[in-house]
Amino acid sequence: MISGLMITSEDALANRSFHTGEVNLRNMDAIQSTTRKTFDAQLKELEQQLLKMGSFVEGMLDSSVQALIRQDSELADEVIRRDDVADNMDLEIETACMRLLALQQPMSKDLRIISTALKIITDLERIGDYSVDIAKAAKLLSGEPYFKPLIDIPRMAELTKKMLRDALQAFVDRSIEKAIQVCKDDDAVDQLNKGLLEELMDYMRKDPKLIMQSVHFILISRYLERIADHVTNVAERIVYMETGELRQIVESHKGA
């Protein structure tokens, strides 16, 4: 069963534009050089590892929400098991970054690529953890039918997944514009989260029997909102990697 699901996530990878055929790192200006071939190859490898990890946690997020929607506790278990893989990717990438820092003394953009990788993997790892939290909630909720059809949670999940996909694409394309757009997209997720909280509070006030499910839906909504925030961090890092300027892209994140 594990391998079946792994293939599914690999298929998802294969369908992504930047994973088709030769590695599509067309905008990676470092590649053109001739003087530091080994280092360039190592940086390229690092980027590949990052993209792989990004796609992998995206797969975890997708499966956790599918498990919730279909009340599929086996799929939820599978997501929980996959967390170890994500954690290992995190460690591997961190190790690779530390090695490059120690042995290659990177400067300028090379340094920014590596520091960006170090920051991004923490966000990706957290996204994996939240996906596990969603999967655990899905397991708890799999025993009885939902009191209402899931509408807002799948919508939030779609938006969040799209943000993550766009952030990874912005990384591949070296696109500041796309990264900034990702940061802006976060507002819609925040709004849905707020709306859902109010709606579910109402249900709970009216009927205490709905509290168990409602509390879990509120938590799941919160997890998705947090995932979107981590994706926003990733996007902000991409802007830094490209510009060398550390700044918060969208002001409203301070309060939210």
Partner: peptide, 16 residues
């Protein structure tokens, strides 16, 4: 060393 303005500087300090 973090964000040179000129591409030639960038190439040089990155060893490219």
């Amino acid at each position: 060393f973090e964000r040179p303005h000129d591409k030639r500087t960038d190439d040089y300090i990155r060893g490219r």
